[in-house]
Design a protein around this nucleic acid. Structure first.
Lengths: 172, 172
DNA sequence: ACCCTCATGTGATCTTATAACATTAACGGC
DNA sequence: GCCGTTAATGTTATAAGATCACATGAGGGT
């Protein structure tokens, strides 16, 4: 799922993230990983929560809360905003999804389980979102923070630009 | 105005940013600097635009668009959302203010004129916002971007935490 | 069975942002 | 100085995002 630090291996589609991959498999893997972590941590991975994560993994891009809500409704769940927001809150709190502030939208985490301060690359043309491992961004601000005595609790790092796929299209 | 990389020099108040400073003066300076840049660049620094910047400089913290709108109304300007948003768009485009995505709010730029990719520290207790010079955050993501072929155009780096002033209060 | 807690369903409301269109002000060519 | 073009503003309406408040239901422990 949109792993971010290597060259594209196939040119055939690269449809949603920046890279081709076995999507059905990556969805299943991620769901299992999260399920396992919930059991370990005594968290309730309820049907709505599972469904929301599944939808985000399946779509493999950032979705707004109301887009998620529509899909939930189609799947027979409640259709009022809090249904989606509550599931998202749970998933956010536990690091299974991230919020893309720039888009007011949500993406499934690319590497759940690992503790990390995420950084994102967002394509302004197709809205694809890739998550990068970024320990560094934190430390970049860390210096300034230390100098002022500011205590950092969370960071959000987002880059907007053009993904390889869209750049290719533009060349044509 | 909330310059970010040095020790607090006075303990008497540190009211809005993380540091004490001659506020009236810093507002005037910033306004002049922006005015000058607009003349140079052939930009129209109209009354609404000036007023919005002035308000942000004066308040010296992140304000929501509707808070700005209220202040505009008080000052005799139009009172419909587009009035504020359009002025903000202008100021954003030209780097005179920044948007804090996390708060859906806007702050006056701390060092207009210098080209920079801003990074912010946001106090979750008092909403004070400090802007740090950060060339590094860009480069942190830059590596991942280069590896995938992603072309970065803009970055947004925000850290949420507790500012020195609020931390002091908590200790008491 | 009971209680307590957490999760869900639902309606209403609030905040943030934009679309669309009319009106007015500034700017350049002549 | 007049006129056409362009950019800025005013105003109405509405879209999009997020939360509040309160009722109902499902699990877990005793």
């Amino acid at each position: 799922m949109t792993s971010s630090v290597s060259q594209p291996q196939s040119e055939k589609e690269r449809p949603l993230g920046f890279q081709e991959h076995d999507h059905a498999r990556c969805v299943d893997q991620a769901l299992s990983a999260v399920e396992e972590r919930c059991v370990e941590a005594g968290l309730r991975f309820t049907p709505v929560r599972r469904k929301v994560l599944e939808l985000l993994l399946h779509e493999h891009r950032a979705l707004g809360a109301y887009a998620i809500l529509d899909l939930l409704r189609d799947a027979g769940f409640g259709s009022q905003p809090p249904v989606a927001y509550r599931a998202l809150d749970f998933l956010l709190e536990n690091g299974f999804v991230h919020k893309i502030e720039r888009l007011n939208a949500f993406v499934a985490c690319t590497h759940p389980g690992e503790s990390h301060s995420p950084a994102f690359m967002i394509c302004r043309l197709c809205d694809a979102v890739a998550e990068a491992h970024s320990t560094q961004a934190k430390s970049a601000l860390g210096e300034a923070a230390q100098a002022t005595g500011f205590q950092i609790e969370r960071t959000s790092v987002e880059a907007e630009g053009v993904c390889p796929t869209c750049a290719d299209k533009a060349d044509t």
